[in-house]
Every structure is written in structure tokens, then in C-alpha cells.
Amino acid sequence: MRHHRIAGWSLLDSPLHRRDARAKLLATLLFLLALALAPQSSALAAVPFALVLLAALFFARLPLLPLLLRSASVLPFSIVFALIEWASGHGPHGGALLAKSYVSALAVLLLAASTPMPSLLHAMESLGVPRAFVLIAQSLFRYLFVIAEVAQRMRLASLCRGGTSPLRPSAGFRASAGSLAVLFARSQQRAHGIHMAMLSRGFHGSLPLAVRPRFRPSDAGFLAAACALGAALYLSVTLR
């Protein structure tokens, strides 16, 4: 699946990968904020931000092209709206929207590609996200691939028996509904199995945290630098 690659990237090693997830999360939010507050009048405002991101990509030792392509998933939405703006005589505004939304998506992708999901979730929890969300997200992410594989196998099995061309669309619709119901039943069984396995290892309601990451001076330095850089970027495009 597509997002497999992001999980793979997040396990690489680089100066950026080694920073504490909290510092990276806050730095990303600052970056997005500075970009969002920058003027909407021209696409040029996004250029300094893009340059900073490219530098960070380089330090993260991540493959440039795949990341640039991956974050293009925001473009269908952006291009449609940019074209609308252009057609209604607001070309520069449309260009700015396009550029800024793309750079924002790239910034978030950089965070996801340099931070393993468990650390990112721990960071969110220590920044105040309720534990329930973190736990739901953990098991969602854990079983996403498992259940998607079931769905994939069901799709293949249906293709093998000519499932693409039902004689009547309504029959195909009902067949899809049936396979979704089966997928649901499997998910339900999975949830039950997990629950039984948790109980048998002494689970009694609370999920204590085993590993607590440490916030090192270098992380503080990184965050301070990100703050300064964000402010500088914002000023550089607004004071011009």
C-alpha cells in the first residue's frame, strides 16, 4: 500500500530523524502557521518556505523526488480551486493558494517521513492530546494494514471470479455490500480476538506508557532555531 513507504522512510536515520518528536511537531506547526499568515497575493511568498523545506529534506537524507510526488496528492483539490480563481480573474491569488497548499503538504509529509508513528503519537499525547485518541490511533494504525490486506484479498478473489463485470450493476452493488459486511465481520472478530488476548495478559483497563522519550538540549536548540527561522521567514515575506 501507498503509505507503507512513509512508515519505511520514518525508520531511516538522519540528524532530523534523531530529533525529539515533540520538537519536530511544534516546529512543523510553527512553519505551517508562518506560511498560513504570509500574504495570499502571490505564489512568490511560498518560495522561501519551499527553500527551507528542501534544505530540511536534504538533512533528513530523504529521497527528493518520491516525497515531492507524494505530497502532490493535495494538487487535485488545489489545482481545481486555483483554476477557478484564475478564471474569475484572481490569478495571483489562485497561484498563491496552489503554492502554499503544496508547501504545507510537503512540510507535514516531512514530519511524517522523519518521525515514526509511535513517537509522533507519544509527542501528541505529551502536548495535550487525550490518551483515548492516541490509543485509538495506535490500534487504527496497527490494524490498518492487517484489515486492508483482508480487503485486498477479497478484492482479488472477486476479480479471479470475474467480479468486475456483473451482469447488472445492482447485482454488483449488492455483492460489494456483501463483501463489506464480511470485511466488517472479520474486523469485529479481530477486535474480539485482540480483546481476549489483552485480557489474558492481565489487562484491566489502563494502558500504561512503557517508553518515555527524553527531550535533550539539542532538541531544545532545534526548536529554538525553528522558531527563529519561522519568524524570519514570516517577516521576510511580509515586510517586502
Binding site: 490509543l135 485509538i136 490500534s139 496497527r142 486492508a148 470485511l183 474486523s187 485482540i194 489487562f203
Partner: peptide, 27 residues
């Protein structure tokens, strides 16, 4: 009461919704 017994099931249901989007319905 920080009783998180239900969270794995909710996560699995979320994963189900994600995976369900792989199944196409002819319209």
C-alpha cells in the same frame, strides 16, 4: 475512569472504515 478497554475496538473499526474504502461500488 481511564478505562481504555474499548479503545482497541474503536481503532479496529477506524481501520475497517479505511480499508472499506478499497471496495468499489458500481453506481
Amino acid at each position: 475512569d481511564s478505562d481504555h478497554t474499548a479503545t482497541p475496538r474503536l481503532g479496529v473499526m477506524g481501520a475497517f472504515v479505511f480499508a472499506a474504502q478499497m471496495i468499489n461500488f458500481p453506481v
